[in-house]
Design a protein around this nucleic acid. Sequence first.
DNA 1: CTCTTATATAAGTATATATTGATATGATAC
DNA 2: GTATCATATCAATATATACTTATATAAGAG
Lengths: 104, 104
Amino acid sequence: MVKLFSALSDETRLRIIKLLGAGERCVCDITAALDMSQPNVSFHLSILKEAGLISDRKDGKWVHYSLAEGDLFSRFLVISICEKYSNDDDSSRLKNSCKSRACS
Amino acid sequence: MVKLFSALSDETRLRIIKLLGAGERCVCDITAALDMSQPNVSFHLSILKEAGLISDRKDGKWVHYSLAEGDLFSRFLVISICEKYSNDDDSSRLKNSCKSRACS
DNA sequence: CTCTTATATAAGTATATATTGATATGATAC
DNA sequence: GTATCATATCAATATATACTTATATAAGAG
């Protein structure tokens, strides 16, 4: 339970959950949307994955992350975050990234 | 939202919420139940209070803390914690403390 | 095979957080 | 008044966390 709340107690990770709420994304798109260094994004993704909140799928060079099917409580938290949290800058950066890449 | 999850991402603070789930408690009883230093307990109480999860009431020498009336989301979290989390050692220490004091 | 792209990991650093011990405040008892 | 008890705050320290730079791995493209 501490691990779950710890995973959610960081703005970057809430932004990632919000992004994934709109559907599966590869690391490069998440990195572009967050406008952060790739190792840092990988670091936050690993924490969310470790907490059981997201899952990954390998596809060639790319790794696609999406919201995980967790227990009722975790899913309620994720849904609440997607509903309450918003970051327009992230989504506009994401759109530009998706247009210029082959990963999706 | 980050502040809320941060407040919940610590075992000591989950223990405090669980204790307060059974009713209002003064700092000395919480300190006894947690078996921790009093300044440390005050520190954690201040974080929970700042996050809007608990509220306090002065009564002479004593300060009594209890779960706050928050928004729906906060209350859901607190209820879930009280339901999922348990620490038998805390409650037995609490009982002994309450027997030997005048604060409640 | 070499080059590039996507991602993860490791080492180092900076900042944040938890904890303790000492002290201050404020209320009650004597 | 002084002494005592309950709580909060401060200073110092230890540990955890976020972030960066550099590097490793692994998959395609040429």
